[in-house]
């Protein structure tokens, strides 16, 4: 009984329960026919949210006001530029990965420079930079659709042992993030900065370094997700990152990470990402119209948040 109670005290349990519930309802509706297909699709699409969500999680953990709104633009720019550089050739994949990494690093540096040197609040800083990044993507690639290299396209769409490759990749990123957060000094530092920046500074935490590294990490993960998404969907599109603006924030918070910062939670991001995808596919299965789908998605998100809030005011 006590082990059950400790399990229910975990902040991430609610997102998994919600995801499992929605999964079950969908499967029951379709008569169990689509169980494998639905699970695979959920893992594939959740992988993108998980990768960007982990970056966003570290940023949000830095404390109140920290959030990266440049994720969608970063994904778009990385996807378009990398595909153009790789030019559908398998030999240039390494080059494409390198360019993706560099784009992520550059955007991370710009974001943090705006925040630190110009003291612009992170929300506005990343918003302004996302405008510039979006423009760069538009002018670099005007609607040209270049096919991804066949090896990458195959890798992102294939499954190994019945589980999508992207899910393994997301798992690798998550494990690394979990180790860094729970066992490594970096995660301790991020949480310390998020809990109390002044106290962290006085305790000798290199606050500026930690914050800079976090914005860099977030941008690099977003760039990677952009590359994967463009390979998965067979080409980059200028609006391909758009839905990840809200998704990246939603998965972090539904997953049990504190919005006020200081407390991060990696497993919850998985639960929340699966949950968000499954809600949409459940409503699709029921044949709901676009309006109803949006309406119910919103209602369910709010309901989960209210159910998961365990600290009512007295």
């Amino acid at each position: 009984m006590t082990s059950l109670r400790t399990l229910f005290a975990k902040p991430w349990i609610w997102s998994f329960l919600a995801a499992a519930g929605v999964w079950l309802v969908t499967i029951v509706f379709t008569g169990g026919a689509s169980a494998a297909g639905l699970s695979q699709a959920a893992l594939t699409f959740a992988a993108f949210s998980i990768i960007v969500g982990i970056g966003q999680m570290f940023v949000i953990t830095l404390g109140p006001g920290n959030v990266d709104l440049s994720i969608p633009a970063t994904m778009t720019l990385a996807g378009t530029v990398a595909l153009k550089i790789m030019d559908s050739s398998n030999g240039l994949i390494l080059m494409g990965l390198l360019v993706t990494l560099l784009i992520g690093l550059a955007i991370g540096i710009i974001n943090y420079a705006l925040i630190k040197l110009l003291r612009i609040p992170p929300i506005i800083a990343t918003l302004s930079s996302s405008f510039i990044i979006q423009s760069a993507a538009i002018s670099y690639n005007r609607g040209l659709r270049i096919k991804p290299p066949s090896a990458l396209a195959e890798f992102t769409t294939a499954t190994t042992l019945g589980i999508p490759n992207l899910a393994y990749l997301a798992l690798a990123v998550s494990v690394a993030a979990w180790v860094a957060l729970e066992k490594g000094i970096y995660g301790r530092w991020v949480s310390a900065v998020g809990q109390n920046m002044r106290a962290a500074r006085m305790a000798g935490v290199p606050v500026d370094g930690v914050r800079a590294a976090t914005y860099l990490l977030c941008a690099v993960l977003a760039a990677l997700a952009g590359l994967l998404l463009s390979c998965f969907s067979g080409g980059a599109a200028l609006n391909m990152g758009a839905e990840y603006l809200l998704t990246s924030i939603a998965v972090v918070v539904i997953g049990g990470t504190a919005v006020a910062g200081g407390f991060a939670n990696v497993p919850g991001i998985w639960g929340a990402s699966l949950f968000l995808f499954l809600v949409v596919s459940m409503l699709n299965t029921y044949g709901a119209a676009a309006g109803i789908r949006l309406l119910l998605t919103g209602t369910i998100i709010i309901a989960v948040i209210i159910a998961a809030s365990r600290r009512p005011r007295t």
Binding site: I249, V253, A289, G291, L294, G298
Partner: peptide
């Protein structure tokens, strides 16, 4: 206020609700 919820997430959810209602209308 009563449930001590993050306003960002609640209004994020509401943005889907208003968006859905607008599309229905």
């Amino acid at each position: 206020y009563l449930r001590n919820l993050p306003s960002i997430v609640v209004t994020l959810g509401m943005s889907f609700v208003w968006g859905g209602l607008a599309v229905l209308l």
